[in-house]
Amino acid sequence: MLKLNNVTAGYGSTTILHGISLEVNEGEIVTIVGGNGAGKSTTLRTISSLIKIADGSIEFEGEDITKIPAHKIVERGITMVPEARQLFPEMTVLENLQMGSFTKVARPHYKEKLDEVLTLFPRVAERLSQGAQSLSGGEQQMVAIARGMMACPRLMLFDEPSLGLAPIVVSQVFDVVKKIAASGTTVLIVEQNVFQTLQIADRGYVIENGEIGMSGPAQELMGNDHIRKAYLGI
């Protein structure tokens, strides 16, 4: 479904990704794990075209999307739930969700998507008219995910959804990701929380210093000595 071929990218003159290649197949949960600054978030940001790609190419559903601008990527069916929620703080929760289905593709499905999302997040339904800013961190994360779903994505990218959340909320977030995947949306997730991510993922890539160091089925990675030492601290 999604294919990165030798992608090189970075900010300004600093190159962060040095020839990343990876693949996500339809219906999978794929995770990218790695240390901070290794290039995990950069990979997602490059896919959603927030960062310009320096070299290499990205294919989505067989088409080349390397040079497509960010707002068009969303129309193609790739939505990213960004790191640290990034809600529109001075809009209500409902308005945030409306912005979620901004694209021409998503707009006709607004009603049904809204129903779907509100069933999945009853807490969000209770707070529709509240300002996004007034929600707690966990609630904001739920709204961010809900907002992402409003765009009718076929592939959802999650950038560190557990960052800065209390452990109890973290497991709720992972439950939601599992549910989204179960409903047929493909998921690519980037996480610090290696242990819990590998538990829900089908396959994983380990990224180190902007290069793919290792990849394989999640269970296998979890059993790998290097990973256990470096990322799980076992």
Binding site: G35, V194, A230
Partner: peptide, 10 residues
Amino acid sequence: MAGINPSDLV
């Protein structure tokens, strides 16, 4: 400690 590598945590 937030955001540092698990391997660096020790």
